[in-house]
Amino acid sequence: MKYPRIEVRELKKSFDDTVVLDKINFKVHLGESLVIIGASGSGKSVLTKCIVGLLKPDNGDIFLDGHRLETNSSDNTTVAANSISYVFQNSALFDSLNVIQNISFGPQLLNKQNEKDANEIAKESMKKLDIHPKFGSMYPKELSSSSRKIVAIARALAVKPKIIIFDEPSTGLDIRASHKLDYLIRESVKNENITAITITHDMNSALHIADSIAMLHEGKLIWSGKSSELKKSNRAEVRRFIKPFLSST
């Protein structure tokens, strides 16, 4: 029996009395790119942080290739680290390390490669994403925000994950940089044959990246399906969310 690459079942998460995620269910298959859309505060980031193990869900299960992921490790380190990479909204590159050291960090510490091999992997990862070698010795503070995001993607890809999660990749970027990033995400997913989950509220990005789209509204998954079917949805919340995009195209 072929399992989905990742499956979320009945996931619930609350902070104090506020329900942030309410019985979320979805599946993503190998090589599929799922985009999760929704307004700010709809629970998108909380959902992906639960998947990767940074937050512990109150209820529900997450399965990776049919195996249930444990998310309550005593040291709060994610047990999914070997399989899931995460690209943070603000890149979250390590300030004290240069670009090569940032990218080789995962191969060295997670995949237990020696320093030389890890550096080779980092250089290879930079090449794939078209990062000029001169950036290798630069520190994150010396890079533009779009370059930082590309380096963050290179760092995430360097550990050869099964799944990669992008948290608002195009936030804070101009249209050109945003398109370039969308293209890189799409190409990376295709070339590496990995499964991608992307959070965004940018419909242009979503349609460019997605094979399928899921929409969160007030902690509930209110719509999911092929990206081409989104415009045909009759749900009022979906229509309201995509209306500005439809009127601009």
């Binding site: 193990g53 940074l54 680290a81 979250a92 390590f94 995962g106 510490l109 997670l110 760092r155």
Partner: peptide, 12 residues
């Protein structure tokens, strides 16, 4: 700046 979470994601 989420660097601590990034460490966890990278299994450290």
């Amino acid at each position: 700046s989420d660097q601590v979470d990034a460490l966890r994601i990278l299994g450290t």
